[in-house]
Simulated scan of single mutants.
Amino acid sequence: MRLLAIETSTDTLSVAVGGGAQGDAPWQHTGPGAAQASATLLPVVQSLLAQAGWALRELDALVFARGPGSFTGLRTACAVAQGLAYGAQGAGCEGGVPVLPVDTLLALAEEARHQRALAGLEPPRVIAALLDARMDEMYVALYACGPLGLDPVPLQPPRLCAPADLGEWLQQGLPQALTPGDCLLAGNVFPSYGAQFSDLAGERQTALPTAAALLRLAPALLAAGQAVAAHEALPLYVRDKVAQTTAERERLRREQLVRLSASVSAVTPLDA
């Protein structure tokens, strides 16, 4: 199988070309993303395809992380995937190359699982994928994990969650026999929000969604019929608002100060 994977939903640009099979060593690139992704993505794609010796029309699928994540990054990945798919049609690939949209949080969870496997650690029973959504919120999704990998159907689908509400969200989404201690918390939220759920049990693991993770997920998703035509490949935003009013920013600032004051009071005697 010949696959091209694109991940631009965070501040890191990740692109990979490979077969997605277990043990496959893909050609890959990692670099600055965000605003730079739109300028560097196509040259990186061309370079990796050249290294693999593959023509665009020879690809079996174009895989991209559809979101949630950075609005600009998601639109960039979607537009490039659609453009390349249609471009292959012009190069003699009838109907164009199929496009496979994959949830960003599924790719994040897969990357965390893969890191643990490389380290020789047992897979967790459940992975909570946590991606910084800024504005004092996280994108979250919950996935079951077994010895053979992740179940791509989430126990809890992607949504927005306030850091302070993470424990309640986990209790609602975990299977009845499991507790938060059975869940691996994986993502990039810990420096910004970790203090707000420091009382939660369960391991923490820093991870980001990667194009290599998309490649590993792609064969099973393609076999399940998840590929679409280029015009049907759309971003998954989850949040439909990217800016706060002055009043909303002030309210969040006050709430953060109240939480900080409560945290300090909890560890400092009143008569100290």
Rank of each mutant, 00 (worst) to 15 (best):
M1L: 11
L3V: 07
E7H: 04
E7S: 04
T8N: 03
T10C: 05
T12P: 00
S14F: 01
V17F: 05
G18Q: 04
G19F: 00
G20Y: 03
G20F: 07
A21D: 13
Q22W: 02
Q22I: 04
W27D: 13
Q28Y: 01
G33T: 05
G33L: 07
A39N: 06
T40M: 01
T40V: 13
L41G: 00
V44G: 02
V45M: 02
V45P: 00
Q46N: 10
Q46G: 01
Q46M: 01
Q51F: 00
Q51W: 01
L56A: 06
D60A: 11
A65C: 05
G69E: 09
G69K: 10
F71I: 09
L74K: 01
L74I: 06
T76I: 15
A77H: 04
A77R: 06
Q82C: 07
A85S: 15
A85P: 09
G87P: 11
G90A: 11
G92I: 03
C93A: 15
E94M: 01
G96C: 13
G96P: 13
G96M: 10
V97Y: 04
P98R: 12
L100W: 06
V102M: 05
L105H: 01
L105Q: 04
L108A: 08
E110W: 03
E111Q: 15
A112I: 00
A112W: 00
H114C: 08
G120P: 07
G120W: 08
A128Y: 05
L130G: 07
R134N: 11
E137D: 14
Y139D: 05
L142I: 09
A144H: 11
C145K: 04
L150H: 10
P152L: 12
R159G: 13
A162G: 06
D165W: 02
E168L: 14
Q171F: 02
Q172V: 10
G173L: 13
P175A: 06
L178I: 12
L185K: 15
N188C: 10
P191E: 12
P191D: 14
Y193N: 03
A195T: 11
S198Y: 03
D199F: 09
G202L: 08
G202Q: 07
T206S: 14
T210R: 14
T210C: 09
A212E: 14
R216A: 14
A218M: 07
P219Q: 10
A220M: 03
L222F: 00
A224C: 09
Q226P: 02
Q226E: 15
A229E: 15
A230M: 11
D240F: 11
K241C: 12
K241Y: 01
T245R: 09
T246Q: 15
R249E: 13
L252T: 07
R254D: 09
E255N: 10
P269G: 05
